[in-house]
């Protein structure tokens, strides 16, 4: 391995940050990891945009609004390897369960007719990204190179995947590491 550290960017789109929490479950292995890896754009660094030369992009969550689409495209443009992390990135997951309900009904239920709602109105600030009609898995928007299933994938999954990549091996997960739940 050369001295140049591998640049990793991460983001949670329509996710719950559970995959990021699971990533942090690497615990003391994080110390070893940062000897080989530096974090670029990520909630862990608060860097707002990807550098142009990121090596690995880890995407948690599906795509539920216009901002998610822009962010996902930024990651694809700047990361050599893009990875779908967790059930929501892979199939839309829990947020995609709204796909059976019309967007209008969803918004009305949450902001107009919901129990305990005061001053009912649909949020419409220009700062707010517009919701997509449906929640989509990220592979429907950009090319994805690897998929790490799980809700969330365990820290061992991240470890095996990243150490394989860092060692120049084709990443492979054994049976115990692949779970859709």
């Amino acid at each position: 391995m050369t001295n140049k550290k591998v640049k990793v960017a991460t983001v949670s789109l329509a996710g719950c940050f559970g995959c990021h929490m699971s990533f942090l479950d690497l615990d003391e292995r994080l110390v070893e990891l940062v000897e080989h890896v530096e974090f670029d754009r990520s909630p862990l660094t608060d860097i707002e945009h990807c550098s142009a030369d990121c090596d690995i992009g880890l995407i948690e969550g599906g795509v539920c609004n216009s901002e998610n689409v822009h962010v996902l495209r930024e990651f694809r443009k700047n990361c050599k390897i893009l990875v779908a992390v967790g059930a929501c990135a892979i199939n839309g997951g829990l947020p995609a369960m709204r796909n059976h309900i019309s967007l209008e009904d969803c918004l009305n239920e949450a902001y107009v007719h919901g129990i305990g709602v005061e001053n009912p109105q649909i949020p419409n600030d220009v700062e707010l990204p517009l919701l997509l009609d449906k929640v989509h898995p990220i592979h429907e928007v950009v090319k994805i190179d690897y998929f790490l299933p799980g809700c969330p994938p365990s820290a061992d999954v991240f470890w095996k995947f990243l150490t394989d990549l860092l060692a120049g091996r084709e990443p492979s997960l054994n049976y115990e590491l692949v779970h859709f739940d």
């Binding site: 779908a84 892979i90 059976h100 898995p137 690897y146 998929f147 299933p149 692949v178």
Partner: peptide, 21 residues
């Protein structure tokens, strides 16, 4: 269904989802 997917090494769904009601 899930176990067959594991057996085949499937990690993604590849195709666009129908999200049928």
């Amino acid at each position: 269904l899930q176990a067959v997917a594991y057996h085949l090494g499937m990690t993604d769904n590849h195709f666009p989802h129908f999200f049928e009601n």
